[in-house]
Amino acid sequence: MESQNLTGVSEFFLLGLSEDPELQPLLFELFLSIYLITVCGNLLIILAVSSDPRLHTPMYFFLFHLSLADTGFISTTVPKMLVNTHTHNKSIAYEACLIQVSFSYLFACLDSMFLTVMAYDRLVAICHPLHYTIIMNPQLCGLLVFISFLVSLLDSQLHLSMVSQLTFCSDVEVPSIFCDPPQLLNIACSDTSTYTILMYFFGAIFGGIPVSGILFSYIRIISSILRVSSSGGRYKAFSTCISHLSVVCLFYGTALGVYFSSTVKSSSKKGAVASVIYTVVTPMLNPFIYSLRNRDIKRALWRLLRRKT
């Protein structure tokens, strides 16, 4: 709250994707549809995994938590954007902006950590299949989820502390659909060179280490698959990783787009579009990627729907 007293700023204005009044109803319907599809899709996966004993395995245990994180991720940004679009009021209170910063980084880091843990799960399943149940025991799975939450909480609090120290002048228009720290750095009136370095340093630590873990896991996985003699065996082993690889590429590809676009102040619209893909489109596509390419999930969903009807 000290930074608010220093800046005199009580609210920000989220410019979103467009300021054209004619496009606002279309944007409202589009984002409302995306939000409902995302929440329902992730909720179906959560219900399928929790209700079907056949899916009580480490891989689906982590998928369950990834769906929770995706639901929280999109719920941090889209509801406020829908309210602002519907009421034609783009303002967001200073405190609400800080809450968005904290929770967006919390759930984004949780996504990153769970994707890393799922890569390790695939590594053990393919490279050490005979010891899989021993290594990936319930205690280790619970510990990995707990560590992921602690690391994500630390990341979110570091970014929150950094943003709360910024000072703002008259220009408080954020060219994004939510309070994105890279965009807040661009509109701050104080010297942000130190904060920019810290932001990318935190990104390298909390993003680089998970990416390195995923790359290491898949290097081991690919080398193990190549040693399989039959082509059918190689395809069967690699098919268990296709869904995870698709989500990894989508998540980290859009995340890099957000940070690279935010480094150039003149590319505010590109940064807003990249932020939308990162925070809205990615959580929506994850349930489809996992459900459409996973027979176990489709069978569990079918059994769940038959039980309800």
Results as ranks from 00 to 15, higher is better:
residue 37 I to C: 07
residue 38 T to N: 09
residue 39 V to I: 15
residue 40 C to N: 15
residue 40 C to A: 14
residue 40 C to K: 13
residue 42 N to E: 13
residue 42 N to R: 08
residue 43 L to P: 04
residue 45 I to C: 11
residue 48 A to F: 13
residue 48 A to E: 07
residue 49 V to C: 12
residue 52 D to S: 13
residue 52 D to M: 11
residue 53 P to R: 05
residue 53 P to V: 06
residue 54 R to F: 02
residue 56 H to P: 12
residue 57 T to L: 00
residue 58 P to V: 04
residue 60 Y to S: 01
residue 62 F to L: 10
residue 62 F to N: 08
residue 63 L to G: 06
residue 66 L to Y: 03
residue 69 A to S: 03
residue 73 F to D: 12
residue 75 S to I: 01
residue 77 T to S: 06
residue 78 V to T: 05
residue 79 P to C: 02
residue 79 P to R: 00
residue 81 M to Q: 09
residue 84 N to A: 09
residue 84 N to M: 11
residue 85 T to F: 07
residue 86 H to L: 04
residue 86 H to Y: 06
residue 87 T to S: 09
residue 87 T to G: 04
residue 88 H to D: 14
residue 88 H to V: 08
residue 90 K to F: 15
residue 90 K to Y: 11
residue 91 S to Q: 15
residue 91 S to F: 09
residue 91 S to L: 10
residue 92 I to V: 12
residue 93 A to H: 14
residue 94 Y to H: 14
residue 95 E to F: 08
residue 95 E to K: 08
residue 96 A to L: 15
residue 98 L to K: 11
residue 98 L to V: 10
residue 98 L to Q: 12
residue 98 L to F: 12
residue 100 Q to I: 03
residue 100 Q to L: 01
residue 101 V to S: 08
residue 102 S to R: 11
residue 102 S to I: 01
residue 105 Y to K: 06
residue 107 F to R: 10
residue 111 D to K: 13
residue 112 S to T: 03
residue 114 F to A: 09
residue 116 T to P: 14
residue 117 V to N: 12
residue 117 V to Y: 07
residue 117 V to A: 14
residue 118 M to K: 11
residue 119 A to P: 13
residue 120 Y to D: 04
residue 121 D to K: 13
residue 121 D to P: 07
residue 121 D to A: 12
residue 122 R to S: 14
residue 122 R to T: 15
residue 124 V to P: 03
residue 125 A to H: 12
residue 126 I to S: 07
residue 127 C to T: 10
residue 128 H to F: 12
residue 129 P to L: 06
residue 130 L to R: 12
residue 132 Y to D: 03
residue 132 Y to H: 10
residue 133 T to S: 15
residue 135 I to T: 15
residue 135 I to S: 15
residue 138 P to H: 04
residue 139 Q to P: 00
residue 140 L to K: 06
residue 140 L to W: 09
residue 142 G to N: 10
residue 143 L to W: 14
residue 143 L to S: 08
residue 144 L to K: 03
residue 144 L to Y: 03
residue 146 F to Y: 06
residue 146 F to S: 08
residue 148 S to F: 05
residue 148 S to T: 04
residue 152 S to N: 00
residue 153 L to H: 01
residue 154 L to R: 00
residue 155 D to F: 05
residue 157 Q to N: 09
residue 157 Q to I: 08
residue 157 Q to A: 08
residue 157 Q to L: 11
residue 160 L to D: 08
residue 169 C to R: 13
residue 173 E to Y: 10
